[in-house]
Design a binder for these strands. Structure first.
Lengths: 195, 195
DNA sequence: AAGTCTTACATACATACGGTATGTATGTAA
DNA sequence: TTACATACATACCGTATGTATGTAAGACTT
């Protein structure tokens, strides 16, 4: 059986991103040498630098994949709920769960801003997580749940608070308690937006 | 004139942190080789590794110094106001101004979490910025401006939103507009805490 | 189907950085 | 003033990234 060049490329890129994702998640971006990634992926440095300009480009691919994945999860949680308010609540839960995963925490929250640069990272976030948040916001506004207002900046502030909450929970000795406090604080905030 | 050993140490450490701070601020932690730092400080690698365990330890010293500096500025802004509400407003302004400085943005907000590790960075933040925020919160609670509540988690969420706002403003094409939106959003949040 | 071109990879190498080991000068105390 | 500790300088080593070069495997052309 003859594999096409496209298939070959897809296969090795997938192997590289999968290996890189696991290693980056476990030890962080620059604690993982490219050698180890290619070894885990069953290829050599040649393959890596053929498909990616540099190590950072591979990392970016990992981040985008991860972001796409968790955004899909959250979107599913939100849209599969019977009504919008419970959907939003479910989305919040799904978000906190996603951020609690070590790979998300390490790769997407800790490494990404610095490795990719803040503005590039922000662009990725805007494409995925922020887009979802603004979507939810718009739905809520249309449903009359919150009063109309410029949502761009507000969404980013909320997203950062959500992210911070997720990190706090992940790092806490008593996650349940911290999560309760965080959800209460965030709930109060959201409630204040209704009017 | 004979300089004591303490004076020598203080001098070279100060030269190292000053040089490192400027270089880290301009180009980021790992874009700056230690060689360049020691050259700028007028010493050699020997001096660096005599006083600091590694490059990261020097960076940490820079972060702590920076944090102490801006916290002092903000505290001054807050306490030198005639009353608490205007003091808090002044503190907010001072905070946003501080975060807008490139060195704070790069060193303290972008590099620090990853280079030092999130929990160590969090500890530094807790000692300076967060402590100030909680202090303000407690004052406001005592003055009856906000209702009593657990402030630890809430303060962190607010701090992260404040920080995000500062980054957004620093990165915006139209800083004034973004700043206005951010202050409005934050103001609404704070207002919701009263009662 | 033979030859040519292009893509996909492997290997070898150049370079740069961080950290250490060793040597030397300067201050300090018995 | 002798014995020691502290503060630095220099030379070196290991390891990482990225590049240059070579090779094999599809993919067109005729």
């Amino acid at each position: 059986m003859r594999r096409s060049q496209q298939d070959r490329s897809r296969g090795t890129k997938a192997a590289l991103t999968a290996a890189a994702r696991a290693l980056f998640a476990a030890r962080g971006y620059d604690a993982v040498p490219a050698d180890e990634i290619v070894r885990a992926a069953g290829v050599t440095r040649g393959a890596l630098y053929h498909h990616y300009a540099d190590k950072k480009a591979l990392f970016r691919d990992v981040v985008v994949g991860l972001e796409a994945e968790i955004t899909a999860e959250i979107r599913t949680a939100m849209t599969s709920a019977p009504d919008l308010p419970t959907g939003i609540a479910a989305a919040l839960t799904a978000f906190l769960d996603a951020c609690a995963r070590p790979e998300v925490r390490q790769v997407s929250l800790l490494d990404a801003p610095r490795v990719l640069g803040w503005s590039d990272w922000r662009a990725i976030e805007a494409e995925f997580g922020l887009a979802l948040l603004i979507e939810a916001f718009t739905l809520a506004t249309d449903a009359g749940l919150v009063r109309p207002q410029p949502v761009g900046v507000l969404s980013r502030l909320i997203l950062s608070a959500l992210t911070e909450a997720a990190l706090l929970i992940a790092d806490a000795d008593d996650p349940a308690q911290i999560r309760a406090q965080a959800e209460q604080a965030l709930g109060t905030w959201i409630a204040g937006l209704i009017g």
